[in-house]
Design a protein around this nucleic acid. Structure first.
Length: 547
DNA sequence: ATAGGGTTAG
């Protein structure tokens, strides 16, 4: 059988090369490939280069066809991956053009789209899907679901538009008779939940139930996740109100606990049992909302249910223990994991290194790094960023730079977070020249600064009263399409108040309200800093009520 | 190997 297939491939390849030679000799530019996006080659290099690239596509497609027809999907996969790795994206034209048998092209196009979507190659996914639809190859709901995920994620990353585009596709699917299924809805519910559109997400669950579609852990998990994130945002509001802080915390605890329990009960009511994914989110959400007791209870509940926690679940638990400041308890799951044959991964180590750094145990953190390397793991950019951060927080700017250069020498690419940590530290300590150096260096490397990066610079500039320059960066970020947040405004309001520029401070305050940016009590404190202490709290409460 | 949910750093 294998020999037979091999022989066919060789024969097919030979047949193709003859076919192509004929084409070349007759000097007819391939009719079949007129629409080839790589046709610009022929512009510079004559027909030969163009045909060579096409020849390669035909050979690849022939091999793929033979593998697919014989159901050798593993081999098909690796050949397809090879074709993509040498940028032969044009094979999609061969596949939709009817050059290979329709049975094989369906399989091959599915596979091609799968590879593109799995690798989040957004434009290639969309263009391939478009060609498939155009040629009647995309009737499969699975393909639609893959594209839905891509559209959803693109929307979430760029923050432009809505998950709307994906919702539109859902409508189109319904119109074309390609019935959306439970997976379709799950993808959309996930997108809406991540955007905080929880009511709309709940509405889709109702729609699913009405349609008799299967509601599962896949459906509820993102929604629970969304509620957890909302709780986290709410909690941020009470920073700075130390006589009211505890009351807020208690309130949040009750509310979030209640919501999470309701959802959990609802899931069980629907016959959906929470699994490791669900529990991980619940534990994480409880941690983030500061309810560490509930986090622990949920983790234990997961064990009682007979579920086997994995690295994700353990990482979440360790974060919780570290928040409680208990180093020994944070390290104990490691033994448990080893006993169960789940070796701690890079993220587990990152969490532990960061935890030790935050507790000021830089020495222990370094020992852990050595152990990590012994275990065959390589510290990554997050690991280094944690250590750089630790040095910065301790005011050791020189050390933080040294670790940064060590990181570069290991061939690791710093992220926007790494640079932001460095910029924040240097700008905050008045070392603005170094901060600016890092700021331009990151952009030269194509790492885009974000709101936090700009806030770090604005903070440093305000501190040394270079407010004009702070405004320049404020304008610069807006030009780049970055939206200033409540911290950006609070920094500028604060400095204007320090300088007695009340008019400007209130102008900024009005502007942020107009833009729908919620101020917090820090903004209000900054604004009212000069008012007598007795009146201050009343004034803050008054403003809080206003919004 | 052909869809869908979860973990770390500013």
């Amino acid at each position: 059988m294998i020999l037979c297939v091999r022989a066919s491939i060789i024969l097919a390849a030979r047949k193709n090369s003859r076919f192509l030679k004929t084409r070349t000799c007759s000097s007819a530019s391939s009719i079949r490939f007129e629409r080839d996006p790589e046709s610009r080659y022929s512009f510079f290099d004559g027909q030969r280069a163009n045909l060579n690239s096409n020849a390669l596509k035909l050979v690849f497609c022939t091999i793929l066809e033979i593998f697919a027809e014989n159901d050798l999907m593993r081999s098909t996969y690796s050949v397809m991956e090879r074709a993509i790795s040498v940028d032969l994206h044009g094979i999609v034209y061969v596949l939709v053009d009817g050059y290979v048998s329709s049975e094989a092209s369906i399989k091959l196009l599915d596979l091609l789209l799968w590879i593109y979507t799995k690798g989040s190659m957004i434009e290639l996914s969309l263009s391939t899907f478009g060609k498939m639809v155009h040629n009647g190859f995309a009737q499969d709901v699975k393909n639609c679901n893959r594209i839905l995920r891509v559209l959803r994620d693109r929307n979430l990353v760029t923050k432009e538009g809505e998950v709307q585009e994906a919702l539109d596709l859902l409508l189109q699917m319904q119109e074309r008779g390609c019935a959306p299924n439970d997976v379709t809805y799950n993808v959309l519910i996930n997108g809406l939940s991540k955007k905080g559109e929880l009511e709309q997400a709940t509405g889709l669950i109702e729609e699913m139930l009405n349609l008799g579609l299967k509601v599962s852990a896949f459906t509820y998990t993102p929604l629970i996740c969304g509620y957890c994130k909302k709780g986290e945002l709410d909690e941020a509001l009470d920073i700075g109100l130390e006589n009211l802080r505890e009351a807020f915390l208690l309130f949040d605890e009750l509310r979030s606990g209640h919501l999470i329990c309701t959802l959990e009960v609802e899931m069980i009511h629907q016959g959906v049992l929470p699994d490791v994914f669900t529990y991980t989110i619940l534990v994480n959400g409880s941690c983030k909302m500061g309810n560490l007791r509930m986090a622990k209870e949920l983790f234990d509940e997961m064990l009682r249910e007979g579920l086997q926690p994995d690295c994700f679940a353990y990482a979440t638990r360790i974060v919780g223990e570290l928040k409680l400041g208990d180093t020994s308890k944070a390290f104990s799951p490691q033994e448990e994991m080893l006993a169960k044959g789940i070796p701690p991964d890079l993220i587990i180590y990152n969490v532990l290194v960061d935890g030790l750094c935050r507790l000021g145990n830089l020495k222990e953190a370094n020992e852990l790094l050595r152990k990590m390397v012994q275990d065959g793991l390589v510290p990554g950019h997050v690991t280094y960023t944690c250590i750089i951060h630790a040095h910065s927080e301790n005011g050791h700017l020189r050390e933080s730079r040294e670790v940064f250069y060590e990181m570069l020498s290991k061939g690791l690419s710093p992220s926007v977070v790494t640079y932001t940590v460095l910029i924040h530290a240097h700008a905050g300590k008045g070392r603005l020249e170094l901060a600016f150096m890092f700021f331009s260096e990151m952009q030269e490397k194509g790492i885009l600064p974000n709101v936090i990066t700009y806030n770090s610079l604005i903070n440093g500039l305000c501190k040394v009263k270079r407010i004009e320059q702070a405004y320049k960066f404020f304008a610069d970020m807006e030009e780049k399409g970055l939206c200033p947040n409540k911290y950006t405004y609070t920094l500028l309001i604060n400095e204007n108040c320090n300088l007695g520029n009340w008019h400007e401070a209130f102008r900024l305050y009005t502007q942020m309200l107009d833009r729908g940016i919620q101020p917090d009590s820090c903004t209000h404190s900054a604004l009212l800093k000069q008012i007598g202490k007795d009146y201050k709290l009343h004034a803050v409460q008054y403003l809080e009520n206003l919004k």
